[in-house]
Amino acid sequence: MNPAPALLAALALATALATGGRLLAWQTERAQDAGSVFDLLLGESRRAFAVHAFLKADAYYHSGFYPSVFDLAQQADNSKTHLQESIKSAGAEHHDHDHDAKPAKARDWLEAFGSHFFPSQHRHLEKFGDEREILPWLRLAAELDPHRIETYTVAAFWLRDRLNKVNDAEQFLREGLRANPQSYEILYELGRLYAENNRDVPRARAVLELAVERWLKQEAPKADPDKLGYGQILAQLADLEERAGNLDRALAHFARLKQVSPAPETVQKRIDELLARQGRPR
């Protein structure tokens, strides 16, 4: 007697989930010229899997602790993953979210008992280099949905900032740029990489200026443009020019930054400092 075919199908599904990216990628390669409906369906499920892979990366960042959708339904704020938040604060120790050391109170004895058998506490990766463990899921997310910008930016951040893998970060960003040539976010990350890690001022400048150009073309006409992103690019550019000694250019960038910054006073302070250094009166 053979094992039930349904069971084999279930196993196949499980394995497909496990090796998801590779299998799906391989499958779509072959299905490329099949009907467009099929492509569309597959495209949707691939995007869903990509989101899943990205969340997985976030769970890995917390050593496997991850509140389920059912837990999240009980809380209000869950718009952004930790992973993204911790990068927004640019590598500074991210105390911007709730670090409740104690696990949530159990609703019943089963929950209390069960909490011993899975990561039920909020915990971050501890050992240096453990961050590398999130990378496979980001890689997978990129493979599943190459148009998800934050996959590239998040991965590049960890690669260059925490893992000292600047070349790999650059390569990955370039990959992202090939798939999303219009993305100012990726250009910005690439610019940061050249500026902060490679100290390659001309390239950093070229890339960041391109980012500004793209932003102006894409975002500026919008009703609600991504001012934060624009500000980041400008700040980076200004810093770059300042370090390179091109104070005029730096001042020009700061001037534009002041217009979009949520804290124009701080920007003004920097402008004042620069003016003072230039030895020019106000």
Partner: peptide, 19 residues
């Protein structure tokens, strides 16, 4: 399948293990 998953090159880092 484990072997296949293990042989994928991930940013030239061979110490990635948790996935």
């Amino acid at each position: 399948l484990t072997g296949t998953a293990g042989s994928v090159n991930l940013f030239n880092d061979n110490s990635i293990v948790r996935y």
